[in-house]
Simulated assay, not measured.
Amino acid sequence: MWFQRTVVALLLLTVAGLATTSYIDWKINTQLQTLRSFVEGYVFADAVAACERASSSTPFKWNGGTSTRVIGLNSVKLDKYNVVASYTLVADGVFCDFDPIKKKASIGSNFLERD
């Protein structure tokens, strides 16, 4: 009888632990999505301005573009210590990567041929 009670108690503790970790994971993901949306909204105006000013053979026209998309905030881990963030916009097939730290934009016409 004691064995059955112990097994049931351990099972209930396991279920409660899984429910708690699932709730904490959901709460943290919700907060991170909110933070990401805030950062993307904050960077958007600077990104558009820098992309339109950037010199390139293919001009980037966000305001006059017929097909514009925001790919969003991305990050690339270069090595163990360096992470580079970029905010990507697409206007009429021209990709523009904006570095929010350096406030610099780079333009490319093909997603696969970009730096």
Rank of each mutant, 00 (worst) to 15 (best):
F98V: 01
F60D: 05
A85N: 14
V43I: 15
R5N: 13
S56H: 08
A47P: 06
L35S: 10
V94G: 08
N82D: 13
S22E: 15
L78A: 04
V43Y: 11
L78M: 09
V8L: 14
T68V: 07
V90R: 05
A19F: 10
G65M: 04
T68D: 03
L89D: 04
I28Y: 05
K77M: 07
T66H: 09
T20N: 06
F95G: 05
Q31S: 14
Y23W: 15
V8M: 13
A49T: 11
F3Q: 15
T30I: 00
C51I: 00
A91H: 04
L13A: 14
A91S: 15
T14H: 07
Q33V: 12
K80N: 14
S55F: 11
T34S: 09
D46G: 05
Q31D: 14
Y81D: 15
T58I: 10
F38N: 14
E40Y: 06
I28M: 06
V94L: 01
L12N: 12
G17A: 04
K61F: 05
C51P: 09
N29W: 06
V83I: 13
T21S: 02
D79W: 04
T58M: 09
V8A: 13
D92K: 02
W62P: 09
S75F: 07
N74W: 07
G41R: 11
P59F: 11
V90L: 04
S86A: 03
L13M: 14
A47N: 06
C51F: 06
L35C: 04
T30S: 11
V15A: 08
K27C: 07
K80Y: 13
V83Y: 02
F44N: 11
D92F: 07
W62A: 00
V94K: 06
L10V: 08
V43G: 00
A49E: 14
N74V: 02
A50W: 01
T68P: 02
V7P: 00
C96W: 00
R5Q: 05
F95C: 08
L18R: 00
Y81W: 15
S55G: 13
N29R: 13
A50S: 07
D99V: 00
V48R: 09
S86F: 04
C96I: 00
S56N: 08
V48M: 05
S56V: 03
Y42H: 12
F44I: 05
V84I: 08
S56D: 11
A9P: 01
Y23I: 12
E40N: 10
V70D: 09
V83L: 08
A91M: 05
T21M: 02
L12Q: 12
Y23E: 09
